[in-house]
Design a protein around this nucleic acid. Structure first.
Length: 773
DNA sequence: TGGGGCCGGGG
DNA sequence: GTGTACGGCCCCA
């Protein structure tokens, strides 16, 4: 039989000798194909074949018969040589690789650290989230699920994705003693949304087993392809597994295999269904400052909740305002569903491009995403995949930052090098295997850093970068011919974006000590050439009589002069072989004394604020809003007096006590284990206090705190924001340590002194006095 | 008063 | 768990 299927997940059996492929037919029916034709394997090199066999017989005993050894040629570290392919069931190979490693050493074995399912994708060149024409044979019975023996498949071009059936899930788990404990606290409620119907399961009485069973049956009946959650991998799924395993119950959420199992990096898998934890999506994007579902919903223009309930208040709401809590998690489930629908195309494209199945592409870090892409390119070229090993973390110099010319400037343009690091890597053939630390006959060498490259071979990374940039250009080319807003447009746009992101990640990946293709020298050489390039461009600019006001890594801010800037760009192109462009033009731009902190007003009418407090979550919203208004007054209206009036007004309002408490919250992240902190700081102290009260504080959590009145250091009088008494807020802290500094930062380059602002805050001055500077 | 710890955002 | 450069807060000696 044959048909067209969209492949969305890959799994393997327990022994590791069969591959399960999940596909969706055009009408949205799930199909399971079983491929028994692909064996797991690894490479062994530079060992004596007889000794290898003897060692394997010793280690494997009767299971030696399950494996086979063949020889072939592969490129290892740039050299083609004979290698042995040891193949067999994944389970047996694990024993074999351990035996080889301990006997012959870790450097004699390759790709034993690449999982069976990954190898399948790599060596079969499978495009996940793509359409295939599949030929398959007999129906097979797999513990109650039916699958088909796979015969062959070939990719087909089809841009549109099938309609995936998704359900979102949210829950209430609460405790009177801080964080809920799976041994002690039942699950209070679960809501499930399938796009049309919202089903609520609310615990009556003390035993949640029956309720959870109903939930599982309900999900099985809906039979979704995707299960959407927000933070599910870190809370709900582990809780489910732990709570019910101890009761001797299994958690069947999958099609086949059914049971939830924890795989890499805290990800939970359900056979045949994709687990999408949207937290993993927002986590990677700096734009989302607090990583909440509310932020994601706002960004996607999804309806707001009538009220947001902090997790610390769940228990109280569960007891006293249950309806409101259920309403909130119902909103969450619906918002997650809507968010997934808006983002699913992006997820599938990311999956398709990197080769990582959608089930865990969001869980994979950007380093692992680009690494998988590089692995697939390496396999295509017959290169052996290096292993990643523990290495010393060494740091090296980065980009060059020019000190800004302080003050307000008019007509300033920003010149950007186009993809500077990727372009340099291409121009100089920089790749882990081409970098040298002494001069070579065919190549470049840079004495200042004692590093160079050979150019007698094409580097892997430059080739990958050329491909990525070409694919991006092709995608953009096609985009210009498609109507904006159509589904095809959105998918292609996502695709070109991902190519760009991947290209920009390659340099950082090379400098990452855990990378399979780690190259400290390569990364150092790239940044060195970056510094040289920007310095050279500055020289050209001054030769042309362009005044450089600021610059950072790959950008230059110069006083705008159309003709001269044009000549600068030409010179960069002709003499350096690199492309630069005018990124934007500011009618007014303000630089403080500090690097990486400025605000500008463009000719498009938008205000850019970079690095200043306005952009930072560790300043309260009230101060951030004030800074925005001050910047606007200065840049757009050119009115310093108005800026000071705004400040005066903000001070008056907080003194009156009319500022909502949530605008005074300062958010900071817990970045390590609480006991590893050496210093005292407000957010750390608040977190420690929560921990004393039974809350589990984990790395990555955001602590929102408010500073209260009292003497001594502020870490001793900061409290978790939901527990602050509005009467006790330290108004003076907020005036002198939040409001005043953000105003001073912007006005000080314009000659407004701190003391004059203090006088305004105290109500004794107008701010525009003679104490300047 | 200055240096260390810590955090967040820029390119 | 992609990289480095940077500013600025609070705390403490």
């Amino acid at each position: 039989m044959r048909g067209r299927y969209w492949i969305f997940d890959i799994a393997s059996d327990e022994k590791g000798e069969k591959i399960y492929i999940w596909g969706l037919s055009q009408d949205g029916t799930p199909y399971l194909f079983v491929d028994t034709s692909f064996k797991d394997f690894f490479y062994v090199l530079d060992v004596n074949i007889d000794r290898l066999k003897t060692r394997l017989i010793e280690a494997l005993g009767s299971r030696y018969g399950d494996i086979s050894i063949e020889s072939t040629y592969k490129v290892v570290n740039g050299v083609e040589k004979e290698v042995f392919i040891v193949s067999g069931p994944e389970e047996t190979l694990k024993l074999a690789s351990r035996a080889i490693t301990s006997f012959f050493g870790e450097d004699k074995i390759f790709e034993d650290d690449v999982r069976y399912t990954q190898k399948y994708i790599l060596y079969r060149g499978l495009r996940v989230c793509g359409w295939y024409e599949v030929e398959y044979g007999d129906e097979m019975e797999l513990k109650g699920y039916r699958g088909y023996q796979l015969i062959s498949y070939s990719p087909i071009e089809e841009a549109i994705q099938p309609r995936m059936k998704a359900v979102s899930i949210d829950f209430v788990i609460s405790s009177t003693q801080g964080s809920p404990d799976p041994d002690r606290d039942p699950i209070n409620a679960i809501v499930i949304f399938d796009g049309e119907k919202l089903e609520k399961f609310v615990l009556e009485g003390g035993n949640d087993v029956k309720m959870v069973r109903e939930v599982i049956d309900y999900i099985a009946k809906l039979d979704p392809d995707v299960v959407i959650s927000f933070y599910g991998n870190r809370t709900f799924f582990p809780y489910l597994v732990n709570r019910f395993k101890r009761m001797g119950l299994t958690m069947d959420l999958g099609r086949f295999p059914k049971e939830i199992h924890q795989s890499i990096l805290g990800h939970f898998s359900f056979g045949g269904r994709i687990n999408v934890d949207l937290y993993e999506y927002v986590d990677d994007i700096p734009f989302f400052q607090r990583k909440t579902l509310e932020e994601l919903a706002e960004y996607l223009k999804i309806d707001r909740p009538s009220k947001t309930i902090d997790i610390l208040l769940y228990n109280r709401y569960w007891r006293e305002y249950r309806e409101e809590l259920i309403e909130y998690i119902s909103w969450r489930a619906k918002a997650m569903y809507a968010a997934f629908k808006a983002l699913e195309g992006d997820i599938y494209i990311l999956s398709n491009v990197t080769g990582i199945p959608p089930d865990y592409v969001l869980t994979s870090s950007s380093g692992r995403q680009i690494e998988f892409y590089i692995m697939s390119e390496a396999v295509k070229k017959g290169l052996v995949i290096p292993r990643s090993s523990e290495r010393f973390v060494r740091s090296y110099p980065g980009g060059l930052v020019i000190k800004p010319v302080v003050g307000l400037h008019r007509d300033v343009c920003v010149i950007d090098f186009k993809s500077m690091y990727p372009s340099l890597m291409i121009k100089y053939n920089i790749s882990p295997e081409t970098v040298v630390s002494s001069p070579v006959e065919e190549g470049f060498f840079f004495e200042e850093v004692g590093l160079g490259v050979r150019i007698d071979v094409n580097g892997l990374f430059p080739e990958i970068l050329r491909t990525l940039l070409r694919l991006r250009n092709e995608a953009r080319e096609r985009l210009s011919k498609i109507p904006k807003g159509s589904p095809e447009f959105r998918l292609l746009d996502a695709r070109q974006r991902i190519y760009k992101i991947l290209a920009n990640t390659v340099y950082g990946y090379m400098g990452w000590s855990l990378a399979r293709w780690y190259s400290f020298e390569g990364a150092s050489l790239v940044t060195y050439l970056g510094r040289r390039t920007i310095s050279q461009a500055i020289e050209y600019a001054s030769e042309l009589g362009l005044k450089v006001i600021y610059g950072d890594t790959d950008s230059l801010f110069v006083k705008y002069d159309e003709a001269k800037v044009g000549r600068l760009l030409d010179r960069i192109y002709n003499e350096m072989g690199l492309e630069a462009k005018i990124d934007k033009i500011y009618r007014s731009i303000l630089f403080t004394e500090a690097k990486k902190r400025y605000a500008g007003y463009t000719y498009d009418g938008s205000i850019d604020i970079v690095g200043l407090e306005y952009t930072r979550r560790d300043w309260c919203d009230y101060a951030r809003e004030l800074q925005y208004e001050v910047i606007k007054a200065v840049l757009v209206e050119g009115d310093k007096k108005k800026a000071i009036d705004v400040f005066r007004d903000y001070v008056a309002r907080i003194r009156k006590g009319v500022v909502p408490l949530e605008k005074l919250v300062i958010w900071e992240q817990i970045t390590r284990n609480l006991r590893d902190y050496k210093a005292n700081a407000p957010h750390i102290e608040v977190a420690k206090e929560l921990e004393r009260r039974g809350w589990r504080i984990r790395r990555g959590m955001f602590i929102g705190y408010i500073v209260l009145k009292g003497g001594g250091p502020i870490y001793k009088r900061s409290v978790y924001y939901v527990e602050a008494d509005p009467e006790k807020v330290d108004v003076n802290y907020y005036i002198y340590h939040q409001l005043l500094p953000v105003v001073h930062r912007v006005l000080s380059p314009l000659g407004v002194s701190k003391s004059s602002l203090e006088a305004v805050a105290a109500g004794t001055g107008r701010g525009l006095d003679m104490f300047m500077g």
